[in-house]
Design a protein around this nucleic acid. Structure first.
Lengths: 191, 191
DNA sequence: ATGGTCATGTAACAGGTTACATGATTAT
DNA sequence: ATAATCATGTAACCTGTTACATGACCAT
C-alpha cells in the first residue's frame, strides 16, 4: 500500500541485452535459447521478446541488421549499440527491487560475466541483509506461534507453510555465501 | 511457445476464499492481513483484493453483508457461500501449473488446513517429481559444462547462476520431504 | 479542527499469456 | 507435395502496480 519507488524494472530487456552482447541473434533464436543461464529459471515467449526488441531498437539500445530482399528469408539480426551497453551497466549498478521474485541478481550476474566487473558485491550484501531480516522474522514467528507441544494437523499444515519460507531464505543465504567471494570488490583481470 | 493448457489460475481468489472461511472480513481487513500464512510470501494490494472480491461476489462464491445507512461506516463484510467452498475444494484437487513461481501449493495447504483434508498427497508427489527432474537436469548441466579444472571468473559466475537453481530445487525437495507425512492420503479426524 | 485509520473505489498502464495469422526455407 | 522449422508479427485479455479520489469515524 505504501509507495515503493520504482527504481529498476525491465529486467527482460537487460537479460536480452546480455544475450545479444554474447551473440547477436534474431528474435526467434533468442526466444529459443533465451540464454543458456537464466533460461532455466525464466522463459519468455516470442511475443514478449519481439515486443522488447522493438522497444529497445526504438530506444537506440540495439540495432537490427535486416537481411532481406535478396531471396533470403526475412530476418533481423540484432546487435547491441554502445547506448545499450551503457544502459546495461547502469542498470546492473542500481539496487534492485527488494521483493523481486524474478531474481534480478541472476541477470546482473550474467551481465557481470559478459561485460563485468560491475561491482555487484555491494548489491549482494544489501540483498543478504534483506534475506537475513526475513529469515529472522520467520524464526520469530516460528517461536511465537509454533512451539506448542501437541499441535493439531491444521497447525502443522500452517507451520509447513512457514517452514517453506524458512528453508527458502536459508537456501538463498547459503547460495549468497558461495557467490560472495566471486563478487568481492577488487578488480578482476580482463580475461 | 507450446500451448500449456490453462488448468488452474486465479490463485488470489482461492487464497481470499480461505481467509474468508477462517473469518468473514471486509476488503480492507483482508488487504491488511491477507492472511497470516501466505501473506509472508505474497502481498496483494487493496485494489487487487477489491477487484477479486467483486468478481467472486458476481460469481456467487461469496456474499457481502452491507452495513450501511444506519449511521455506521460504509462497509461490506464478505462471507463464503457453499458455491465458493465447493470451488475451493475443486481447485485444490486439480493439478497446479508446473511453472508456478507463486507456489500455489502453499495456498492449497492453507485450504486443506481450513476445510481439509483434500487429498493433496498426490499433488505433492506430482510436484516432487517435477522438481526432481529439474534438479537432475541442472546436475547434468553442471557435470557437462562446469567440471573443467581452472574456470575463468566469467565461467564461475555462470556456474553461480546454475548453483542457485540447484540449491533452490534441493531446498524445495527437502521441504517436500518434511511435509509429506502430513499429507499422506489417509483421512484425518475432523479436529 | 486536524490527522490517522477504516473503507471502497476508478483509471491508466506495464507485463505476461494465449490465440490467431502470415509467409519463407529446408528436409523428407 | 507435405511437414517441420525459421521468422515475425497483431489482437485480446488478465494480472499487478501506481496514482488519484472520496468519505466516514475516531482520537487528540
Amino acid at each position: 500500500m505504501t509507495a515503493a519507488a520504482r527504481i529498476a524494472a525491465m529486467s527482460i530487456q537487460h537479460a536480452l541485452l546480455t544475450s545479444l552482447l554474447e551473440k547477436p541473434s534474431t528474435g526467434y533464436a533468442l526466444a529459443h535459447r533465451f540464454d543458456r543461464s537464466i533460461g532455466y529459471f525464466w522463459q519468455a515467449t516470442h511475443q514478449q521478446i519481439y515486443r522488447e526488441l522493438n522497444r529497445m531498437a526504438e530506444a537506440g539500445w540495439i540495432l537490427a541488421d535486416e537481411h532481406d530482399g535478396n531471396g533470403k528469408r526475412r530476418s533481423k539480426t540484432y546487435h547491441v549499440l554502445p547506448a545499450g551497453r551503457e544502459e546495461l551497466a547502469r542498470w546492473a549498478g542500481e539496487p534492485g527491487l527488494d521483493n523481486d521474485e524474478r531474481e534480478t541478481l541472476l541477470i546482473k550476474l550474467r551481465a557481470d560475466a559478459v561485460i563485468g566487473p560491475l561491482g555487484l558485491g555491494r548489491e549482494l550484501r544489501r540483498l543478504t541483509e534483506i534475506h537475513q531480516a526475513r529469515l529472522a522474522t520467520f524464526l520469530e514467528i516460528e517461536k511465537r506461534d509454533f512451539s506448542a507441544p501437541n499441535p493439531t494437523t491444521a497447525q502443522r499444515l500452517q507451520y509447513a507453510i512457514l517452514r517453506r519460507g524458512i528453508l527458502s531464505e536459508e537456501s538463498w543465504l547459503s547460495w549468497a555465501n558461495e557467490v560472495q567471494p566471486l563478487l568481492a570488490d577488487r578488480p578482476r583481470p580482463a580475461s
